[in-house]
Structure formats: C-alpha cells, structure tokens
Design a protein around this nucleic acid. Structure first.
Lengths: 175, 175
DNA sequence: GGGCGCATGTAATGAGTTACATGATTGA
DNA sequence: TCAATCATGTAACTCATTACATGCGCCC
C-alpha cells in the first residue's frame, strides 16, 4: 500500500519511465525503502490495470522502448486517499532482535555482550550511511531525519541493555 | 527465522502442544509478535521435517489428539545458532508512515495536523495496551520494555513534526 | 441442543524476493 | 571485442495471512 503511494507520489510530481523511477528511489530514498526492480515493475503493471496510471511509449535513439507513466484522475484520487490513510495509521514496528532479547539470559553474559556489541557496530555503520544520504526537497527530508532519530534511540537502548548485562553478570554468582 | 527461534526457545524451556504454544504466545507476547495460528502450525510441521523437533501423541480425556513437541539435538543446535544470528544482526525497521511524511507538504497544514494527531492517538492507545502487558520472567520482559521505550520516542518525534507543521503553516504566506 | 472452547489442520491468496532472460548501446 | 548500462520483464519460490473444514466435549 505505502509502496503504491510512493510510486504515485513520485509520478504525480514528474512523469517517468520505470527504470528512471527505480533509479530515483534507489539513489534518493534507498535508506528508507527497499523497492526491488521486479516489485516496482509489478506494481506499475498492477496500477495500470487498476486505471491509476497510464503510459506513453517513448524512444530515445535506438534504445529499448520506454513506458512513461503518469497519473490518471483515478490515480490522483487513489493518491489522495492512500496518503491520508498512511498518515492516520500507526503501524507497530517489528524488531526481530527482540526475540533474541527474550532468551538473552540463556547465554553466557560475556558472549551476550559480544553479540550485542556486534549488533551495535552494525547500527553504527548504518548510521553513517544515513548521514551521507543526499538532501531532499520539502518534507521528504523528514523521512531520513526520522530514521536518524530512531537509530540514535536504538543505539541508546542497546547501550542500556549492555550495561544491565554487566550488572547482571557481576551479580550472577549470587543467583 | 526469528519466528522459528521463538518457537524453539519456548519449547526448549517446556514441551508443549501446538494449541498451548499459540495461546502462550498470544497471551504473553502478543504485544511483541503476531504469530497467527496457521503460521505456527505450519512452522511446527516444517521444523519437524527438518528434524529440529519431534512430538508424541497424547490424549487427555476424549479430546482431540495433541502433538506434544520437544527439541531434538539438531533443534538445540539450530536454536543456539539462530539466537546468536538474531542478536548479532541489526535489521532496520520499516516505517510505512514515513512515506506519507515525504508528501506531507502536499496537504493543507491544518489537515496534515489532524491526520498526524489521529496517528498519535493510535500510538497512545497502543501505549496503554503495552502498559497492561503481563510481567515476564527473566529478560523476556526487556522485549516489552523495548517496545515501550520505542513508542515513547515515536510519540516525541511525532510531536516534534506537528510542532514544525505549525511553524511552517504560520510562515506559508511568505513562500 | 446450541454455542463456545479445544485441537488440528488445508486451500487459496497475496506480497515480495531471487534468479534468470532479452537485446540494444556505449565506453575502455 | 568485451563489459557495463539501459530498459523491460518472466518464473519459481518463500513466507505469511485469511478463510474454511472438522469433530469432540462442556456448560447453560
């Protein structure tokens, strides 16, 4: 649903062909979404069938035909509705690593600590990627800012957990 | 992957039959995962085929047969590996609403604000659900604490955005 | 005796991914 | 001439969900 919104929102601002669209998302929003090539083409096809977008064939030089997509009135309406639906809704974020947390007490505290520090390193690497993301016009930049804020909070949380682990470890002889 | 870990981790502590397992997850971890009945049965079947778990038939009264599952040595090893893999890995969380954020400037600021406040209300309701979650033994409770912390941060973020929107709105005449 | 709870599933569907297919052009 | 890029897709697969199917026991 939000993927369709993304495509519609971009096409609404500027008509594009599929390849261009995918490249644009990859370069500009790659840190916030991961829309794979076949998924994008599939969604474009689906939205064409739903009558939300149309395309004109277009050729530059002797290159393969391009399908340049733009919104239909129905697509515009779908965009308006999807946008509101997405903004109204809160979707709890899944944290796969939390299931690991639940069983953390089954591990030797030293090893648990090593593992969590490895996870933290991954977070920090991702943090650097986020900070090198290109600037965006308008509120699009808020998306990246959200990611950055979130990641900072996650790192703080992990540090807290690691700290607790040390405390637990120090007391483990008494249990 | 983390769903398999969850099932293995629970069965490792105490052998159970499917229905019991599903009920347990629903009641105790319902706020952190949403493992549906058919998915659970499917995973139990799959892990049986992989040789990670076995079951014994068991009947209480004239009730339907129960399959009481427990880990095999291979399952124990899988558990150990999955646990470490999950703890080592950082998986960026997807935020569907962020795609809405990117197009927020396409809306009338007053409406944008209403929508975000609706989202906030959803968050606050979820927050209350989390606070009524039952206490958990060991580190399992950290999972819920993480959710609570995360949600608090998300609410703070949304408030910031709403505040910015007001500012933008006040200045919009100049743009 | 009628509905809810126990206990197990199957079937159909959908969303998304990976890997593969095609064929032309441009640059080293 | 050989690889990368442009531009489009298809096929097979995984994972999870919804809806449906079954049948007994227990309680009102």
């Amino acid at each position: 649903m939000e993927r369709e919104l993304l495509l519609l929102g971009i096409l609404r601002r500027q008509q594009m062909h599929g390849y261009q669209l995918i490249e644009f998302i990859d370069q500009n929003l790659g840190t916030c979404t991961d829309l794979k090539k076949p998924t994008a083409y599939f969604l474009l096809e689906k939205m064409t069938q739903k009558g939300w977008i149309t395309f004109e064939q277009n050729q530059s030089g002797n290159r393969p035909l391009r399908r340049v997509y733009r919104l239909t009135p129905a697509g515009e309406q779908a965009y308006q509705e999807l946008l509101r639906a997405v903004l109204r809704t809160y979707t709890p974020a899944p944290f796969p690593a939390d299931i690991g947390l639940a069983f953390l007490d089954q591990l030797d505290p030293a090893e648990a600590r090593e593992l969590l520090e490895a996870q933290m390193k991954n977070m920090q690497e991702y943090q650097e990627v986020l900070h090198t993301a290109p600037a965006h016009p308008g509120t699009a930049h808020w998306m990246i800012e959200h990611q950055i804020t979130h990641l900072k909070n996650e790192i703080a949380w992990l540090q807290k957990i690691i700290h607790r682990l040390e405390y637990t470890s120090a007391n483990s002889a008494e249990d």
